[in-house]
């Protein structure tokens, strides 16, 4: 395993920061901008399914058009029926592996807190790990962001990606 250059770590951390700030501000277009336009994918899956080899996910955006449709779903289709909530994403980089061709596998631990309007108490939405594949060209973008959550039973329905 080769030593990871500081500028690579910097790029990956920047991308992750853009991602979690976009979600905490509920700016779905900025969220979308974190993904690679040709190959970007997003998946939210329970650890129970992941570790048993069950493919069903909570969210499965397996191509860029699906990511675009997720933005429409959150901002247009379900905007008015959702009980909205504020999230706070806390992340911790745990590893980076160089895959060659400017691609890196990066893993993060994360926890997401939520504060729901009307209730106004804060609770844990989910805890888990990101398994990312990041492409670093001029800027960094996600080829894959996979969120695997230890929280096998969600505490409420989830309106936004994490």
């Amino acid at each position: 395993m080769s030593e990871i250059e500081p500028n690579v770590i910097f790029s990956i951390e920047n991308l992750n920061r853009d991602y979690i700030c976009a979600l905490d501000k509920l700016d779905m277009n900025k969220w979308l901008a974190c993904f690679n336009k040709q190959e970007g994918t997003y998946k939210l899956i329970s650890n129970e399914n992941e570790s048993n080899g069950f493919p069903i996910a909570f969210m499965l955006d397996d191509k860029y058009e699906r990511l675009q449709d997720r933005v429409t779903q959150v901002t247009v289709i379900q905007e008015d029926s959702t009980e909205h909530y504020q999230t706070r994403h806390m992340t911790q980089l745990t590893s980076i592996v160089d895959l060659g061709n400017n691609r890196y596998q990066a893993n993060y631990n994360f926890s997401v807190f939520y504060t729901q309007n009307l209730i106004e108490q804060t609770a844990i939405l989910c805890v888990g790990r990101y398994e990312d594949i990041v492409l670093i060209e001029n800027t960094a973008s996600f080829i894959q962001r996979k969120a695997v959550i230890d929280t096998n039973v969600l505490p409420r329905y989830m309106a936004y990606p994490v």
């Binding site: 939210l44 069903i56 909570f58 969210m59 289709i77 379900q78 029926s81 959702t82 989830m158 309106a159």
Partner: peptide, 27 residues
């Protein structure tokens, strides 16, 4: 799999609203 993982359940495109009603009707 991609249909079930995007359309149904607690995050689904055609079902998440039901979930929002469960808690709102209860309240």
């Amino acid at each position: 799999i991609r249909q079930a993982s995007n359309l149904l359940g607690p995050c689904g495109l055609i079902s998440m609203e039901d979930a929002s009603i469960f808690s709102r009707i209860d309240k």
